[in-house]
Amino acid sequence: MKTPVGLLLVAVALLMLSGCAGATPGGHPGPQDIFEKSRNSDRAPSAFHDDVQRASCGEITLSPAEEIPSDVVECMDSAVAKRNVELTVASPTTEGDPIITYYRTSADTSGIEMFSNGEYDKLGSRDWWHAMCTKTMALLVLEGCQD
């Protein structure tokens, strides 16, 4: 049985108010620690766990149909081929399960490197996905990574 997204959001809010923000009723990490748990996953590709220092363009959680804000897209695009920067985005699947995606730029590479963590997607493959996209962040948001 699927839980409507609105009820799930209410449940998460109640857990946060009660001081139990560590996990949602479905066993997912709570909003306070989902990025940390994902970042420390031992299932991530080895390339994800490099020692490169990166500035941050933020850690954002999107609601269904919400897009990455334009100021965040600009932060990433201004760093392409110039600086090591990372943006972390949690976005829900249709069922409300979080997919965590890390967008990275590098001073040595044109384009955006992506790592997506599907471990919390109960109906998906529960795998990580890695790609190098030779696009700007603005194009990546519009067209996806087809490289």
Rank of each mutant, 00 (worst) to 15 (best):
E66D: 03
N84E: 12
A81Q: 10
A13G: 06
L15H: 11
H49R: 14
K122Q: 11
S38H: 01
S70A: 05
Y102I: 01
W128Q: 04
C75L: 06
S91P: 03
G118R: 13
W128H: 13
A90S: 02
A90H: 04
S18Q: 07
C133A: 10
T3C: 14
M76Y: 09
K135Q: 15
T3N: 06
P31M: 03
D33T: 11
H49K: 12
G111D: 06
R54E: 09
L9V: 10
S41V: 09
T109W: 11
L15G: 12
V73C: 00
F35L: 02
I100D: 02
D121K: 08
I60Y: 13
C75E: 02
S18M: 08
M137S: 02
T3G: 08
S106H: 14
L87E: 10
M76P: 05
S41H: 09
E67T: 00
P29A: 03
N117G: 08
A107F: 09
M16S: 03
D108T: 13
R43T: 14
A44I: 12
L7Y: 09
C75R: 06
A47R: 14
S38Q: 05
K2A: 08
S38F: 01
A21G: 05
F115Y: 15
A47S: 15
P4A: 09
N117F: 04
S91D: 07
R83D: 15
L9A: 05
E86V: 14
S106K: 13
A55R: 12
S18H: 12
